[in-house]
Write a protein that binds this DNA or RNA. Structure first.
Lengths: 158, 158
DNA sequence: GCAATCTAGTTTAATCATGCAACCATCGGA
DNA sequence: TCCGATGGTTGCATGATTAAACTAGATTGC
């Protein structure tokens, strides 16, 4: 990924997430895993990325505990890559990315799929952020506080 | 960004979002913009990225309608970079990234800040996804449908 | 049981984006 | 007019990405 200042030691959680899954392929691999893709060759066929890159990405995702390898499942001797709880936790990020594109993309008519709830088959609502007492929050209604008590941060999501 | 198969023509909205903001710096630039950062030199100081890269990224973000340039505001002759509605629409993505890190990071004690609601100063809840009739949905409760009517997609967020 | 094919990689070479540093033009203040 | 800050641009070295060739073991077909 080109010599990058790793954000691993950054104290911003956004930067830390990006450090883990902030490249194109990692997120798309996780997306495919949600679709049920689990084998090396399947990932490669669906995503069309170079196999060496896939090798590196899969290994990194396993190292980070986002995917785990299981010895088999369909009887074949090959291993498969499955989402861990941490990997499944990426779901809201995928939904957020999807909804942003649905709302703001310049050519929404080219988007092929809609996320619907399985039971009723109807589109889901937008992701919603609530305060602990149940108020719906927008960007302007939130601010950042240092984790360890102390004084209010000046940095606010305006 | 290294000769990349551009996802611009991909029909998956996640891929399309990644194509727009799927690199490390773009998202961090948007994060800073939410913090109120608006000038070239501020972005450069806070993020510590090379100025040429910042130039390219800012231009790309402006081209995509995520940032817009305004001639001034504090009287100086320099321009400033402001979030457009499309840019402010990235907020849920930032929150999702933040919450994923908060929940799954191997060293959460290194995270410096907490997102709180401005009014009460208390941490926000997790992002929630609801069906149109108000049921809280997890990854397993959703599936994908082709946008243009027709038959159910086999690809489900399992 | 043998050959063909599939799987999951590794290796290699060419390419091209990235990051860094140095340079440059403009603006504002003294 | 000089000086520092601002907002870039240019050039080069690094190294990430890719396609393609190669490999070794597993599986399937016959």
């Amino acid at each position: 990924m080109v010599k990058r200042t790793s954000f691993e030691r950054d104290d911003c959680p956004i930067a830390r997430s990006l450090d883990a899954i902030g490249d194109w392929w990692s997120i798309l691999i996780i997306r495919e895993a949600f679709f049920g893709v689990s084998r090396f060759s399947e990932f490669q066929k669906k995503l069309g990325l170079a196999k060496n890159i896939l090798t590196v990405r899969l290994r990194a995702l396993v190292d980070q505990g986002i995917l785990k390898t299981a010895p088999a499942s369909d009887g074949s001797a090959y291993q498969e890559y499955l989402l861990t709880p941490k990997g499944r936790g990426v779901f809201p990020i995928l939904v957020a990315l999807r909804q942003w594109s649905e709302e703001f993309d310049a050519h929404p008519e080219e988007i092929a799929t809609i996320l619907v709830d399985k039971e009723k088959g109807r589109p889901v609502r937008k992701l919603e952020l609530y305060s602990q007492d149940g108020r719906l929050l927008g960007a302007g209604d939130t601010t950042l506080k240092p984790r360890l008590a102390g004084k209010q941060s000046k940095r606010a999501y305006s």
